[in-house]
Amino acid sequence: MREKIIALIENQLGLEAGSIKETDLIEDIRGWDSLAHVLIIGELESQLGISIPLEEAIEIVTVEDLLAKAGV
């Protein structure tokens, strides 16, 4: 599932597969601005059925955070 989530994010941002590492800070990832962030949270829900609550979604700093909040 972790790979699936990362692949979904890479796809959403139009990045090559393998370019995102779990330890990356999201602000360092190309294209991951606040708008992309909202869209990624939306996509996790519609594609993978993973619903990160609003209040947690805005606290995410690293990819690891996101994976943890996603419960994987």
Binding site: S34, L35, L39, I41, E43, E45, S46, S51, L54
Partner: peptide, 19 residues
């Protein structure tokens, strides 16, 4: 239910889901 996303609305005034 599929068209709107209250969460995205509260996060960034984006009313519409990705779909």
């Amino acid at each position: 239910e599929r068209a709107f996303s209250p969460k995205m609305w509260y996060m960034g005034k984006i009313l519409h889901s990705n779909d």
